[in-house]
Amino acid sequence: MKSDAMKSECARPAAPAAAPRAFIRVYVWEAPVRLFHWANVACLLTLGATGYLIGSPPAFLTSGDASSGYWFGTVRFVHFLAAYLFVAVMMLRLYWAFAGNKYARWRNFLPLTRQQARDAVQVAKVELLQVSNESLEPMGHNVVAYFTYAGTFLLALFSIVSGFALYAATSQSWFPHLFIRIIPWFGSEYTLRAWHHAALWLFALFVLIHVYLCIYEDYVDGRGAISSMIGGWKFVPRDVAASPQAQGLSGGGRRRRSRAATGGQQPPTAP
């Protein structure tokens, strides 16, 4: 049957194949997703840098009159401005989670199905433990990446809520005052500030791992992961794109292919 045909096409022989695997270009990341990503990069870098400066101001000026400078005030202003942009960027992404294509959909980010759990285990085996070479080849992100981004969204939410709660004292605007109710949960503003500060380091950790894994994926999988952030196109093996399983939740990710020269058996696919 059709699936059998797929299987035989897909399970590559141990001997070096004569013909290279055919890839097609697929448009995965729509413009709003890419805009979100790079605006997010700009916001996070700005917020991280200014936030760190606010936490530990260097001695740029060591003497002078207060009337002669305002650099620290400017740093804080930039931080607050970037925070508003950050909220806007997050709102855009949240909207696109409902309006975008299926790779951008909200469902991907939530652990909803048993298949996602199985895929997560497989991702860990292939990419982290490297005990298997049966790579999932999702069109979008792999499940672990989606879940990590969901966690990062929560971190962003915490940073926004805590940051604006701290900012409310110096603002007449209604928006920051939406969040001041969380201060008593933390006991005092000082404690909340410490948590807000800790979030910076979690973001830094995320960025480090995220950038590494992008390079890793681009290098090891060779499907244009990095360039897809700019143009939106990824490269997908023709057989994966054509497989019926590619119509799944996060697209494509149901099919495994053995990329090792030793070959591998076809694991069960999702019903």
């Binding site: 101001p57 207060a66 305002y70 620290f72 004292a169 110096t170």
Partner: peptide
């Protein structure tokens, strides 16, 4: 907010 040293804070004089 009511500290008389506040201008030094904004000027980054610590």
């Amino acid at each position: 907010d009511t500290c008389y040293r506040r201008p030094n804070f904004d000027a980054g004089l610590f």
